[in-house]
Design a protein around this nucleic acid. Structure first.
Lengths: 211, 211
DNA sequence: CGCAGGTTTGAATGTCGTCAAACCAAGTGG
DNA sequence: CCACTTGGTTTGACGACATTCAAACCTGCG
């Protein structure tokens, strides 16, 4: 993706860090974080309303590039959903690099367009889908981005988030999420082993349930 | 924003067009449209589910730059909400220009980050706000982007969309939107003249109602 | 005036949220 | 090894809010 010059400069200034699940990576508009590449694990991006209501606005999987968490306008928080490995670059370094590197500009543009598409896709889910369609959608999303959702037989997926976070991502309550999971289970579309591990038996049926 | 060279090239290839309200500007993943600058009026961006449920995923006001309507992944439709004036550029021209112009790359990046912030902001609205908070939010959005939402006294806003589109933007039904408008009216926060014209009497109260 | 489209209002229904209790899985210490 | 604790999850009963279906109502326009 990037040329040797940029890579060298990035390598000089970047720092690999590990974070355990639940750790806060950036709050609202802070200066701490700069840019980061997710090299393993999953990161939750969220916004909260004054009264505490929370909405997850994105899940970043490897090898997504996170940045602009701060920006002037968008007060996002980032939290490690699972154990996470990042490759961080300080804000100033990144911005200097971006200005001097065409490829990096295009890479950033590409990432933000991808994020934009995903956000808009999710707006449809939040605005127009029923509870069970939302749950099916998130299962499909996770299966797609983590395992291979293209396999034929059973697909085993380790959920990076619990029911409460699923609820915050889907605009539902934790109880409703749980009920719809049970429903999919009774329909034989999925089964659950432990709380975090889902086995998708019929991926086409699941897709059919996404609306 | 752009240098003289880019502007000249843009001027050579761009074409100004007018469209009346309701006109379709781009459907799903078509090749027709290329990129366009909204120079006046308002454009609705929407996605539809197979069964016809619709969600507006963005409103573009002047001087927003629209592009990537097609892209590989995101099947958006664009429709003129009001009478609209565009400054269009063919896809290939734009892409060649983007590759050769740093400023244009940054302009595109800026626009897509702005769109991303807006989309995520709206995800909170769709996922976590009550009906009345959503209606208050859209009124505030329109007031902010069309008139001056910073004035002291009454603010007069000409809505670019009707109740049905508001509903599709807010993830509600048209009837619910109407009820919440009436509620805001009875509370004295706004009043309505005709169906498209809203007078905001108490902008702070309105902000308070956005959640 | 009278029609057409969009909007408002009403009554009944349904889906999802709230509150509360039971349950399960995993880890700790006796 | 097993009781016990803890955090997360499931299930149930009930209520609230938004949807649905239907009718009345404006507003602009021929």
């Amino acid at each position: 993706m990037l040329g040797p010059t940029e890579l060298r400069r990035l390598a000089t200034y970047s720092r690999r860090t590990r974070h355990c699940a639940g750790e806060t990576l950036a709050v609202e508009s802070d200066e701490v974080m700069g840019y980061a590449n997710v090299t393993s694990g999953t990161v939750k991006l969220s916004r909260v309303l004054r009264d505490g209501r929370q909405q997850l606005v994105g899940l970043q999987f490897a090898p997504d590039l996170m940045g602009r968490l701060f920006s002037t306008e968008s007060p996002l928080s980032a939290e490690a959903a699972t154990e996470v490995e990042l490759c961080r670059v300080p804000k100033e370094v990144m911005e200097a690099l971006v200005l001097s590197s065409d490829r990096l500009k295009l890479r950033l543009l590409d990432q933000s367009l991808k994020d934009l598409d995903e956000a808009r896709e999710w707006m449809v889910t939040l605005g127009r889908k029923s509870a069970i369609e939302r749950v099916a959608s998130v299962l499909l999303l996770v299966a797609t981005r983590m395992g291979g959702a293209d396999a034929q037989g059973d697909i085993v997926v380790e959920l990076p988030i619990g029911r409460a976070d699923m609820a915050d991502f889907l605009g539902l309550t934790l109880e409703t999420v749980s009920r719809q999971m049970s429903r999919l289970r009774h329909e034989g579309v999925i089964s659950v082993q432990g709380h975090r591990c889902v086995v998708i038996h019929d991926i086409d049926a699941l897709k059919g349930r996404t609306g």
